[in-house]
Amino acid sequence: MATTEAEVADLATGAASTATQVEKSQLTRSRVRAAWLFLAPMLILLVMVAGWPLFRTIWFSFTDANLSDLSNAKYIGFENYLAYNDGEWYGVLADGEWWNAVWNTLKFSVISVTLETILGLVVALVLNASFPGRSLVRAAVLIPWAIPTIVSAKMWSWMMHDQFGILNHMLMGIGLISTPLAWTASPDLAMTAVIMVDVWKTTPFMSLLILAALQMLPTDCYEAARVDGIHPVRVFFQVTLPLIKPALMVAVIFRLLDALRIFDLIYVLTSNSKDTMSMSVYARQQLVDFQSVGYGSAASTLLFLTVGLCVVLYMTFGRVRFDGR
């Protein structure tokens, strides 16, 4: 952009400019060369820690690799994914537990991101109002975000303890439940518990992103709405929401991608329980606990493809743009 403008200006000044133009393009070329030189270390590092491991994982998924000896891996085609042998189907795609993990992950992601968005909106609207003590509230809201996921999982599993937990104590105190609940152990409640902790932990991120969008809104249309005496709820749905929709869509996809790869919270809160096992937990269990790197890599690759598919679908249907400006 800068060069074209400069070139146009040069042409306008006439013949004497040819020399400076050559100089300018030389300068540009040396700058581009410097740019690549400065990019190289980052690119090499990124290829080393991201590109290569991803490539190797995909390769392992087509082999019978074992954790104790990775170098002896043999190519076995799609057998880790799906194979037919003696009247029975084998492979990740024929494993009921994998599909259970897929279902758990999708259920978890959709429910918790929806709840976070709604709660995040409420918190952001509160923080956007001006009232005494606002900065105190903002500081308080940031605390769950700052707490390490493992720590929040431990804190909540103590609060949800079936015998001594404060959550049961509170709920029984106000008469909502009559007997203590086993939050993390019972099959019906385990997923609820995971979602509760995740919502608590990640709502701050959501509300801060929404707050930033709210603070960039023009004030004049709100003035107009107030003068016309339009009800605030209507203003919210017809003015605010459409205006912050682009930012909201970006925040939602960030959270969705995070939720789809959830590992640590579930691993610590409910360990390898089937009721909450996510795709990441499944893949790691195969890889590390059962030592079958080939099979686990096939699961990892499927997770990668699922996440990729979600991004493509979301960007196509949500018309989200990521190109910076």
Binding site: P53, L54, R56, S300, L303, F304, V311
Partner: peptide, 20 residues
């Protein structure tokens, strides 16, 4: 591409990273 890498699920590179 850089943004794409930030979306990688960590598990998706786990076995390759282990080997590395």
């Amino acid at each position: 591409t850089v943004l794409g890498v930030s979306m990688f699920p960590q598990v998706a590179v786990l076995s390759g990273m282990f080997e590395l």
